[in-house]
Structures are given as C-alpha cells and as structure tokens.
C-alpha cells in the first residue's frame, strides 16, 4: 500500500505481538530448554521412585506429560485429581466459612444492656437502632435556606418598631450618624433581651435618688393613666403585676447595735425603734397562735 499523508495506519494487536516476539526470540527458547530439562529429570526420578503429583504449570508441559504418562497410567491410579479443591480424597466436601468473614462490629451499648440484663430479652421489639435516612443534598440546601429566611423574617418583625414612623429618632433611614448609632444600640439591646438578659442595657445603673424616684413615679403615672383610659373605654387590659416588697433584715455592720443608730458616741433610738421595744411581744405571739388555731 502506498504511504499516504494524514492519519497513520493503526497497528493491530497481532502485528504488535509478532513484532515483540520477534524482538526476543532467545528468552523463549531458553525457557523451553529449561522445561525440557525439568521434564527429563522428572522422568528419570519417576522411573526410579514413585510418580510425582506436581500440578502441571504450563499447557505445553501438560500435553507432554499426558503423552509421557500414558504408559505409566496403570500403576498411577491412587492419587486423585487435584482440580477440585473442595473435595478431599474420601469424597466429603468441606466448606470453611470462617475464612471469609467480615470485620467485627460491636453492638451498641444500649443493646448490650438490654440483652445482658437480668430480664429475658424481649422478642418483639427490635433493639437495633435504625439508621436515620439522610436527606438529599439539594433538599438539605433548600431546607437550610428556608430556615435562614424564616429567622430573618422573625428578626425583622421584632425590630420593625424601630423602623416605624412613630419613632423617627430611631429610624435608620434618616441621615445622622448619631441616630444610626442609637438604632444599632437599640437593636443590640433587643437582641440581648430576647436572648434572656435581665434588664436593658439602657437602664442607668447609678443616678441621683431623686431622679430615679422621678422616673419611677412618671412610669407609674403613665401606667395608671393608661389603665384608667382603658377602663373608661371598656377595654380589658392585662393583669397588673404587683412587685412584691422584700422585707429582709437590713444589712448592718459587724459590732453595730442591734437597735437604733450609733453615731458620735451616742445611741439614737427613733420613735419606731421605741415602739418596737415597748410594745409587748406577747401580743404578737398570741395573735399568731390564734390564727393558727
């Protein structure tokens, strides 16, 4: 065939094998020589002693052997063929499953407790924990997105009071940086309170007593006003929550007097203290007893 430009002609497998065989003829001949030698030795050995039952390795060798052993077949019937590995000489098939076995896995602790306890293990219910079906990847991502959106929506609803027109000072849209900062603090406060803070961060810790009193009074007044208006309009409000007054024993200094006030070397007793001292304690006890009965 005339050589053509363009694609090279594809080399077939046979050609390749032929070429490789041709390249190393010596090795093959050597190999066959060795086999012949082995066969000769073997033949000599078998002529002198018992025949060997080596499994034929090569096909060529097997053919030779079958020719050689044709004449010796008569005194060579004792050894069975080794082709069937499962079959031993007396025809009993042996299966060994122990060899092919899986890596050991341990049962769960709860299952062990259930089985090894004193009670007879219950038959009906399966103690094996069923594997939780894993959600598919796309489902997972969609779910996650939904959850995220949900959270954001809830947050927005909670903080929408800050954006309302009624409280323009906290609006984030109006320009000044101070107001924006304020809104941010307010947001943080809301967050913290929703997470379970006891009081707002805007609550001033220390201030003049009169101021605090004023603030409390004002809040109280506002609340009363709201309630009064609601009552007039016939609106039912939430129940008033009364804060319990705590009457604890006042913390006193060590070594101080148990009654009155010690100042400037004199113990001063107030009228209240005097009342507490002079009033007979028996009355109280009597009253208590009476109530109990």
């Amino acid at each position: 065939m005339a050589p053509t430009l363009g694609k090279r002609k594809r080399i077939t497998r046979e050609e390749l094998e032929q070429s490789s065989r041709a390249s190393s003829p010596s090795s093959d001949s050597q190999c066959s020589d060795r086999e012949d030698m082995q066969a000769l030795f073997r033949k000599a050995f078998e002529a002198k002693f018992a025949p060997l039952d080596i499994e034929p390795v090569r096909k060529t060798q097997k053919v030779e052997e079958s020719e050689e052993e044709a004449e010796e077949e008569s005194d060579w019937s004792g050894i069975s063929s080794s082709e069937d590995e499962n079959e031993t000489s007396n025809g009993v098939q042996v299966f060994d499953y122990a060899s092919a076995h899986e890596p050991p896995t341990k049962a769960s602790k709860s299952e062990m407790r259930a089985f090894m306890s004193a009670k007879p293990p219950s038959l009906s219910k399966s103690t094996v924990a069923k594997p939780v079906p894993k959600p598919k990847k796309e489902d997972d991502s969609v779910e996650a997105a939904h959850l995220k959106n949900d959270l954001e929506l809830q947050k927005l609803l909670r903080e929408s009071t800050l954006l309302s027109a009624n409280a323009p000072t906290y609006s984030t849209r109006t320009g000044s940086t101070r107001e924006r900062k304020d809104a941010r603090h307010k947001l943080t406060d809301l967050h913290i309170q929703s997470l379970g803070a006891k009081k707002s961060i805007f609550e001033q810790k220390s201030m003049p007593m009169s101021h605090r009193k004023g603030i409390i009074a004002k809040a109280k007044m506002r609340e009363e006003k709201r309630r009064a208006e609601a009552k007039e309009n016939g609106i039912t409000l939430e129940k008033e929550r009364k804060t319990k007054k705590v009457f604890g024993k006042r913390e006193r200094g060590v070594g101080g007097p148990s009654v009155g006030k010690f100042k400037g070397g004199t113990l001063t007793l107030s009228k209240k203290d005097l009342r507490g001292l002079t009033s007979s304690s028996g009355d109280k006890a009597k009253g208590k007893k009476g109530r109990r009965r």
Partner: peptide, 21 residues
Amino acid sequence: MIDTARGVLNNFVPDTYIFSD
C-alpha cells in the same frame, strides 16, 4: 469464640452480635 462463630453466621444473618462476659 465470638470471632469464629460470627465468621460462620454472618454469611446467613448480618444482624449477629455476641456479647462477652
């Protein structure tokens, strides 16, 4: 003992557990 017994039985029933005491 557990290893051998499981080697035999695991082929038939995968849910095979033997506890040791």
